[in-house]
Simulated scan of single mutants.
Amino acid sequence: MEWQGVLAALFSAIMLGGAPILAKLAYQAGADPTAVVILRTGLAALVLWALYLIHPRWRRYLYIYPVGLLGCMAVGFTNALGSIFYYLGLHRLDAAVAHLIYSMYPVLVALMIRLNGESIPGLTRLRMLLASVGLLLLLGRFQGRPDLLGVLLVLLSSGFYALHVVLSQRVLYEMPAQTLTLYALTAMAAFAPVAGWIFGGAHSEVPTAALGPILAMAAVLMLSRLGMFMGVKRLGGTQTALLTVMEILVTVTLAVGLLGERLTPIQWVGALFMVASVMLVAREAPRTPLPRWRMPLLPPAD
């Protein structure tokens, strides 16, 4: 197992686990869900461009070829749609419940990759089974009747996020994770206002009290995407998605501790199944490395 990829994926999961809590804080301050998505994505892209332009060693990652740019746009477009659906659904559901539903995406990633002709090792299938059983236990005891529209929106976001992971794996065959992060986030920032206008009708005004959580969400988005794409580059889409199940535990813990949400004992058992799925990564056999990007195309650092 490529431990650099494991650490990158876990870092991404821990960062993303706090995003729903920050979003709930922004909602409580009066921010509109689509405005939250548009602002956090735009800020993340602007800061990332500034860092790449200023840092000499990262400036070389600005290079991209036309077909690669189209791939990054596809990754950013699917991610933008998924984000809009997720934060609209999160506005209607508790943070813990919304993220539990959203955590179906590792299974969807594995199914998409299998449909693409790639094999899934036996231990990976066991980890998928544990994650799926954990999810069923987590969803088995809603507190009251669930908001069906909220559930549908989050399920749609899970599907788009899974597609974005699969597309990123393909794009990463031929470019560094740093390049994909920059251009995918830029495309996401460009598509998010359009998707928000179509699906959410975002309001332009954002209360001052919501700016702090939104700024924190922008930092989380920027760092987590970089970690996730590095994980996909080294581990592949399925393994990275299974590792990022850990983010649900971060979300649930924070939702219980900070927002006062509660889970039943059976839901906590489901969370343990998900932890077991993540911990089994240590038993995975090393995977075949992905084709490396052609380094001569990468300009040297200044």
Rank of each mutant, 00 (worst) to 15 (best):
V166H: 05
L136G: 07
L139F: 05
H99S: 11
V97A: 14
G30H: 06
R145Y: 00
G68M: 15
H99L: 08
Y161N: 08
A95M: 06
A98D: 06
V165N: 06
F142N: 07
E118G: 00
G159R: 08
A35G: 14
L130F: 13
G89S: 04
A45E: 05
A96V: 09
L108D: 04
D94G: 11
V166Y: 02
R127S: 07
L138V: 13
R59S: 11
T78D: 03
R125F: 03
R114S: 14
Y161D: 03
N116S: 12
I84D: 00
L90H: 04
H99C: 01
L93M: 06
M73E: 02
L39Q: 09
S103D: 09
H91Q: 14
I120Y: 00
F160W: 08
D147G: 10
I113G: 00
V36W: 02
M104G: 02
Y86K: 02
M128N: 09
L130M: 15
Y65V: 15
G117Q: 05
Q143N: 12
G68S: 15
M112Y: 02
R57C: 11
R92Y: 07
L115P: 01
V47Q: 05
L48D: 07
R60E: 11
P33Y: 01
L135D: 11
C72K: 06
L148N: 03
L111Q: 05
L81I: 10
G144C: 05
